[in-house]
């Protein structure tokens, strides 16, 4: 059974159609990286998987449970799906430890001792064992994002969603978050990752999905998509992202020297 099965997914914000018929399956243990230009619908696709956005039509199954079914107990499904946001979204009024234990205690009904133990384990996993008593505002962006990952992992998810997890970070802090994600992938976690980190996608992804204009333009192994893209739009995008200093003025419609 696939971890995620998306079929015929459509989503609009008002007049704007953001997703125009997405079909995608993610198998257990796969790391699928979704790349594409801003506004291509990548994040919306991700947010539909745990119903942070309500799809207009189409079906989404997570571990066989149809989340788009109106009778689906979405809170129960979400417990099995970890999510990491671009802006971290740590709870500012809670210490790092409480950030990681509150859902364990309130949702999974774990005892305080059990929740604290799981929190320590996961903080250790992301290399922040000494920060349990800090508050989010006292941490760097990279540290906050690692706490957010630990918070998600503490719920023992079968699947992790990453929504541009390094886009809000200073460049020198990106590496520490990617290192944690790479380890997670190596341990066999099923991951759906929206990212602009092409090096990460190339190295870690089992499959790369290129989206543009609300559709999946092409997908394949990193070697295929990066090494030998079939579609012109993919080539254009990769050229602009991977070789930004080689984008010619003629490509952007500028007329120099007139």
């Amino acid at each position: 059974m696939a971890s995620i099965e998306i079929a015929g997914l459509h989503k609009s914000f008002g007049e704007l159609e953001v997703l125009r018929g997405i079909d995608l399956a993610v198998e257990p243990g796969e790391v699928v990286c979704v790349i594409g230009p801003s506004g291509s619908g990548k994040s919306t696709l991700l947010r539909c998987v745990n119903l942070l956005e309500q799809p207009a039509s189409g079906t989404i199954r997570v571990a066989g449970v149809e989340v788009t079914d109106p009778d689906c107990d979405i809170d129960a499904v979400r417990r099995g799906i970890g999510m990491v946001f671009q802006q971290f979204n740590l709870f500012g009024h809670l210490s790092v430890r409480d950030n990681i234990t509150i859902a364990q205690r309130r949702v999974l009904k774990r005892s305080r001792a059990e929740a604290n133990r799981v929190a320590s384990e996961n903080l250790d996993r992301v290399g922040l064992a000494g920060k349990a008593n800090s508050y989010p505002a006292q941490l760097s962006g990279g540290q906050q994002q690692r706490v957010a990952i630990a918070r998600a992992l503490a719920m023992d998810p079968q699947l992790m969603l990453f929504d541009e997890p390094t886009s809000a970070l200073d460049p020198e802090l990106v590496g520490e978050v990617l290192a944690v994600m790479r380890r997670l992938a190596a341990e066999g976690m099923t991951m759906l990752v929206v990212t602009h980190e092409m090096a990460f996608a190339r190295e870690v992804a089992s499959r790369v999905v290129f989206m543009d204009g609300g559709t999946i333009v092409e997908q394949g192994s990193p070697a295929e998509v990066f090494g030998n893209p079939r579609e012109a739009r993919t080539r254009e995008f990769l050229h602009r992202v991977l070789e930004p200093t080689r984008v010619d003025e003629s490509e952007i419609g500028a007329h120099p020297g007139e």
Binding site: N50, L52, D75, A76, R78, R79, I81, G82, M83, F85, Q87, N89, L90, F91, G92, I102, A103, R106, V107, L108, A148, R151, A152, M155
Partner: peptide, 17 residues
């Protein structure tokens, strides 16, 4: 910020919780 509610819901909390 709206992200606070989203993060909480993502962890399986009900709206009320």
């Amino acid at each position: 910020p709206k992200g606070q509610l989203e993060a909480a819901r993502t962890l399986g909390m009900s709206h009320l919780r």
